[in-house]
Amino acid sequence: MSLQFVVDGLLTGSMIGLGAIGVTLTYSILRFSNFAHGDFMAWGTYATLAVVSAIGATFGKVAPIAPLSFGWPLLVALVIGMAFTAILALLLDKVLFSRLRSQGQAIIVVMASFGASMALRSLLEFTFTSRPTYFSRAIQIAMPVGFGIRITPDQIALLLLTAVLVLGVHLLMTRTQTGRSMQALSQNAALARIVGIDVASVVRVTWVIGGALACVAGVMIGILVQIRPFMGFDMLLPMFAAAILGGIGSIPGAVLGGLIIGLAEAGAVQLIGAEWRAAVSFIILMAVLFVRPIGLFGVRER
């Protein structure tokens, strides 16, 4: 067995983990499973692609930052794409989720997110067609790093970016007043109001973080694999599996869960064949629900 699956698994795991942060935050703070989260990824990626194209059209061809496959336009576009996705999430909450949430039945909100997911995805297909597209068609040479493992510069850069973002979100959650307010709201919404936390503003922060990270995860998929309208929807099961494996509400849990599922998927491809890849998240999800439903870092509800 080649150890290459470690790199592949960590990369897939990073994408899953970044997405799962949004899933776990929405679940613990807003108390519903947002099935449209995958489509935030796709929308963010297409928005980023659109900005990259616009920069290309304005400034002409920009040389990539050696040895990476992309240049500054993608970095600028990513930041704009993150902002766009955050605004998309806020908008969807305002016109759809917040109204249904006030009726107090979580299942209605879940169903609405399913509908929103389909609508968002179809809009992408309608606008950009379902044909795959790419940020760059240049082929990168993977460098051997020993133990039979090869890695491209893009992959190294994206792993580092993931690490920085995860650390940033973790510090935000544990060291800032905003993060403590988010924790408080997820543990006891009524008490959070009593201690003076403005629930509406914490909810907005939650959407902004979840949306922005979904965009980064999508762009990672776009750089390493391809861009298509279903790219996010196809990540939904592994993201939920990661969030549940890590324990709902836990940021480190979501990321670790993502890495475990990414590694398991990549390992399974080598051991039992690529056609079983998708089954891995399912099996892990079911195993967690059987053995330890609260997940790795979860805490039993009182």
């Binding site: 007043q177 006891n188 008490l191 003076g196 009182r302």
Partner: peptide
Amino acid sequence: ENIFPLMSVEDNLKVACGI
């Protein structure tokens, strides 16, 4: 349910200091 059970004692105090 007048405390946040998963937060430390100190964070329970800090989270109330918003004003």
